[in-house]
């Protein structure tokens, strides 16, 4: 009987689409975006160093994975480092004890972090707000403790251990440019994956969960499933960042699971603008620049991080990218109004 209802409404043809809608029908991701990102990172390499920029990009991958969880789904976690550390340790241990193949080690790192996400997600994802943030923190503490103490035999406790991956043809990760290129490639892949995911119905799903989860349930969706998927995905991508940092430093130590480092990624997302992949990239770079160079000039540099956070929360709610995007949209709207006014005059 519903056929009747829908058949009386013929599907609108292209020309019939309201102009307002077609105006917004631009592609979600463009080739130029990838070029811009790659060019941006390449351009800062002469100023900084290849090794540093590689480190920045790894942090940006981590920030994007965090943004999926926090910016898009609205679940703030204070324990995301757990997944980074898990990726780093499982990659490092695999290379140390099983095989030197770096590609398999990366896959192992992602898989172990993902598996951990699947298990912990079953519990964590059921909570929201402060509870979600703190349960993550609790698990991060547990992970940190495990690495330091009960598993000291294999993880070498506080000292950590060296990681030397074997060469795979030209893929020699101890060469700085090769490492740089591989990390850049990973970053672009992660960006592409997340861009597609967040501009699909799934993206609308997690944004809807952020705004009103109950309402989504009354649209006929089992929200638990989608929150779980997002959590596992964010965990695996953080794991990828971890494996890359292990390969980049040729070294794994408990710092990669340090509970206090969670602050960094939260800062990065807030500075750049949460809920926006470009924001995660910009914020990641800005945070890394601040945390790498400010300490050289100012001893207690964290205070400035505090001040900048205050400015962001009170003045630039949507971060750097959100602010710029707002300016641009405002301008576009203004131009649209001006243009339609001109056309109106022309008609008369």
């Amino acid at each position: 009987m519903n056929e009747k209802k829908t058949s009386s409404l013929n599907p609108p043809s292209k020309e019939e689409l309201p102009s307002t809608l077609t105006n917004f029908q631009r592609k979600e991701y463009r080739k130029i975006d990838f070029l811009l990102i790659a060019a941006g990172f390449l351009l800062i390499t002469p100023i900084l160093s290849v090794h540093r920029v590689t480190d920045f990009m790894i942090f940006c991958i981590f920030a994007m994975s965090f943004d999926l969880l926090y910016g898009y789904m609205g679940r703030l976690s204070f324990g995301h480092m757990l997944f980074l550390g898990t990726g780093a340790y499982s990659c490092g241990l695999f290379i140390k004890y099983v095989s030197g193949n770096p590609l398999i080690a990366i896959l192992v790192g992602i898989a172990v972090a993902g598996l951990l996400g699947i298990l912990l997600g079953l519990i964590i994802v059921r909570t929201t707000g402060a509870c979600f943030a703190l349960i993550n923190l609790a698990f991060n503490h547990i992970g940190f403790f495990l690495v330091l103490s009960p598993l000291r035999e294999i993880t070498r406790g506080e000292d950590g251990f060296g990681v030397s991956a074997s060469k795979l043809g030209f893929l020699n990760f101890s060469s700085r440019p090769i490492m740089f290129g591989s990390v850049l490639l990973c970053l672009l892949l992660v960006f592409y994956l997340l861009k597609r995911l967040t501009s699909s119905p799934f993206g609308i799903m997690i944004r809807s969960i952020k705004e009103d989860e109950t309402r989504v349930r009354f649209l006929g969706y089992n929200t638990f499933l989608y929150k779980w998927i997002t959590f596992v995905l964010a965990g695996s991508l953080a794991g990828l960042a971890g494996t890359l940092s292990a390969l980049n430093y040729n070294y794994v130590n408990p710092n990669s699971m340090d509970v206090h480092s969670n602050v960094g990624v939260v800062f990065a997302c807030l500075i750049g603008g949460a809920g926006n992949l470009y924001g995660a990239l910009v914020g990641g770079v800005v945070y890394m620049v601040i945390s790498n160079f400010l300490p050289i000039y100012i001893h207690r540099w964290e205070m400035f991080l505090g001040f900048s956070l205050l400015i962001i929360t009170f003045r630039f709610r949507k971060g750097i990218c959100g602010y710029l995007l707002g300016l641009w949209e405002h301008g576009a709207k203004k131009r649209l109004i001006e243009r339609s006014a001109e056309q109106g005059v022309a008609k008369i």
């Binding site: 609108p12 689409l17 309201p18 631009r26 592609k27 979600e28 597609r196 699909s200 119905p201 993206g203």
Partner: peptide, 16 residues
């Protein structure tokens, strides 16, 4: 997971 929401199929449904 991967079809853009700007896709015609989805847009037509919404418009309907």
């Amino acid at each position: 997971f991967f079809l853009s929401t700007k896709d015609d199929e989805i847009q037509e449904n919404c418009l309907k």
